[in-house]
Computed example of a mutant assay.
Amino acid sequence: MKITVLSGGVGGARFTRGLLAHLATTRSDRGGGTSAEVTVIANTGDDMWLHGVRICPDLDTLMYTLGGGVHEDQGWGRAGESRRTSSELSHYDVDSEWFTLGDLDLATHLARTGLLRSGQTLSQVTERLCRRWEPGVRLLPMTDQEVETHVVVDAAAGGTRLLHFEEWWVRHRAALPARAFVQVGLESASAAPGVVAALLDADVVVLPPSNPVVSIGTILAVPGIWEALVATAAPVVGISPIVGGAAVRGMADACLRAIGVETSAAAVARHYGRREAGGVLDAWLIDTVDADAAAGLRSDGWRVGVAPTLMTDVPATAEIAARALKLVVTGHPA
């Protein structure tokens, strides 16, 4: 089975780790039968230049999480991290206090930047870095071109101004009301090599509980990706990032509010849309606390599964992945 996952950072990485755990159990139960191939297409809209290095937060979170090196409590960054370089930079008054680079993490950014400047593409560099981490998936950036998500916010002197998404998210904790999101560089971008084929050739496509606006939404905005998702013969299943009217992690509610979408499991499903009605989903998995929403979605033609969806640990996440696959592979409710 070929499974393709569209992923942001922490939520997508943790889901994929659970998916791999589920697939490993399935192989074991079947006596080590044919293994699944998992491809992860990562959002790179959060990428930015800082201190002369190229930072790819979602790609790195996926590598570290799937490769066993992530700081588990944070969900991002390296385990056993130190901050000596950032501390020293602060003495030169050039440190970015709102985005601190750890020493181990900085090594990844230095390696990436050097390889990019040698003429390699982001796809080639990502493949090279994955040799270190062996994530157990084929990890692809959504595009090799630089596409950076910026946020339109009110300016103090009137009018509006643009902030890089990471500054809005990390420095301001999404407290500045977002008027819109702009993907700078999107107009000249194209899907990275292998991305469209990974969607068209998949047996199942999964949209994990990543931010539907600035993670999954940014991936879908890359020319060619939405079209491939609509065209693929594979069923497409999504897992709601909203439980009980609140974002499970991060500040997805602020992003949804900015584009006029209610913070609810049902509203996010309708934001993605059913493929039969011009959207991208064939099925939607929601948490048990949102079970009341299932009837309304089903009456509108949705295939809906209801199950516990909080990724509390790897076994719980493996069960979520199993239920999502069951929803589209067997056609039975999760």
Rank of each mutant, 00 (worst) to 15 (best):
G102S: 05
G102C: 04
G102K: 07
D103L: 04
D103C: 08
D103I: 03
L104Y: 10
D105T: 04
A107N: 10
A107H: 07
A111T: 14
T113C: 02
G114Y: 11
L116G: 08
R117Y: 04
R117P: 02
G119Q: 07
G119N: 12
Q120Y: 11
T121C: 02
L122S: 01
L122K: 02
S123V: 05
R128I: 10
R128F: 10
L129I: 12
C130S: 13
R131S: 13
E134V: 15
E134I: 13
P135E: 01
R138G: 04
M142E: 02
D144L: 00
D144F: 00
D144A: 00
E146G: 08
V147R: 02
E148R: 15
T149D: 07
T149N: 12
V151H: 03
V151Y: 02
V153F: 01
A155I: 12
A156E: 14
A157V: 11
G159T: 05
T160G: 10
T160H: 15
R161H: 11
H164C: 13
F165C: 03
F165W: 10
W168R: 06
W168G: 02
R173E: 10
R173Q: 14
R173C: 08
R173G: 05
A174C: 15
A174L: 06
A174H: 10
A175R: 15
A175Q: 15
P177M: 09
L186N: 04
S190M: 04
P193Q: 08
V195Q: 04
V195D: 00
A197F: 03
